[in-house]
């Protein structure tokens, strides 16, 4: 127990100190947290519930746009603002900026939950591959629709006001926003997976038909899980919107094959269906990506595809799954009948 406490304490200290110890890497570290958030939320449905979404990026992009629209709408007319494409002079006071940011994050999260329930109501009747393809389709379509929607800037995207004050302080703020969201999400999931809710979504993953036959409200659980995941992704999107300042619909908001697939790869690499897997995977993947990306000279996307294929084909359980096989006693896994020394009757 004491060991565990020391471990968590060290993590917290590292988390708090990181942006000051490595000041050059503030934005990089923030991105790691973003990856952790999207990987953990992807794993809620993908790993714990057995519903593999390829379209969670929809919530990220929607979160960005909702936050931007809320912030602008508090002060100006959105259509005019985006129509001027940076031509007009639009000032935001500090108060307006932070009010927009706070409200934007909140509304983004709630709006994305709502969207998840609506889309989920249609797509959760779909099992297995249909769900994955359906959600991927939704993400692709959402990007195209938004990039055709002039009111939010069309293909040009939206520019938000810059952080008022020292930009380095801004980077620290964004780091802690991401980190705070990530920690809250982690603790939330740590608790959620020990409740009956967690058991129920695991049951849906293991045998949905049996779960139905036992009278579990499967649709309700599926919708609730996805809505919770969407809430956190939406918030992450909102933070990204302020961090990026200017974003486009296809390149940065609904980036289907960048972040949309990264989150899946992170979860798989770390080990899906575990609490720590997506966290480990996100950190490993981001480090791998940052170290190799620039040396691959255009071949990085090919390498990404190869990484996906290699992970699913050869490294199914991910890092944590691999550890579980090697060191089962670390994880309190249930023993198999033939391994147990039972003196009991059959």
């Amino acid at each position: 127990m004491a060991k565990r406490a020391v471990f968590y304490l060290a993590l917290i200290v590292f988390m708090l100190a990181a942006p000051f110890v490595f000041p050059v890497f503030k934005t990089q570290l923030a991105t790691v947290w973003l990856m952790i958030i999207v990987a953990l939320t992807w794993d809620m449905t993908g790993g714990q519930m057995g519903y593999n979404s390829l379209g969670n990026i929809t919530f990220y992009g929607t979160g960005m746009y909702v936050a931007a629209v809320v912030t602008i709408a508090l002060v100006y007319d959105v259509g005019e603002y985006t129509g001027s494409s940076g031509g007009g002079i639009y000032e935001f006071t500090d108060g307006q900026y932070f009010a927009g940011m706070f409200l934007g994050m909140l509304v983004a999260g709630l709006f994305c939950s709502l969207i998840a329930i609506v889309i989920g109501y249609i797509t959760f009747g779909l099992r297995g591959p249909y769900f994955a393809i359906g959600t991927l389709g939704v993400a692709i379509a959402a990007g195209e629709l938004v990039s055709n929607w002039e009111w939010v800037g069309g293909g040009q995207g939206i520019a938000l006001p810059v952080y008022p004050g020292d930009l380095e302080d801004g980077k620290v703020l964004f780091y802690f926003l991401f980190a705070g969201t990530g920690v809250v999400l982690f603790l939330f999931l740590k608790w959620l997976y020990t409740t009956r809710f967690g058991a129920a979504i695991n049951a849906i993953r293991d045998d949905e038909e049996k779960a139905e036959a036992m009278g579990i409200h499967t649709l309700q659980y599926k919708l609730a899980t996805w809505a919770m995941a969407a809430f956190f992704v939406g918030i992450a999107g909102a933070i990204s919107a302020f961090q990026l300042i200017h974003f486009e619909p296809l390149e940065s908001a609904y980036q289907t094959i960048n972040l949309g697939i990264f989150m899946v790869v992170c979860a798989l690499l770390g080990g899906k269906g575990t609490l720590w897997g997506p966290v480990v995977g996100a950190i490993l993947f981001h480090v791998f990506k940052e170290v190799t990306w620039n040396y691959l000279l255009g071949w990085q996307w090919v390498a990404l595809g190869a990484l996906i294929v290699a992970t699913v084909v050869y490294f199914e359980g991910g890092v944590v799954g691999w550890l579980m096989e090697r060191k089962p006693h670390w994880f309190n896994l249930p023993a198999k009948a033939d391994e147990a020394t039972g003196e009991d009757q059959p």
């Binding site: 993908g46 593999n52 390829l54 297995g128 591959p129 994955a132 393809i133 094959i257 697939i261 899946v264 798989l268 996307w301 090919v302 990404l304 595809g305 190869a306 990484l307 996906i308 294929v309 699913v312 084909v313 199914e316």
Partner: peptide, 15 residues
Amino acid sequence: LFTTLLATFGLAIIM
């Protein structure tokens, strides 16, 4: 199923 789906999606990206 998801393994095959994701593996082929990886292939799609590569190609």
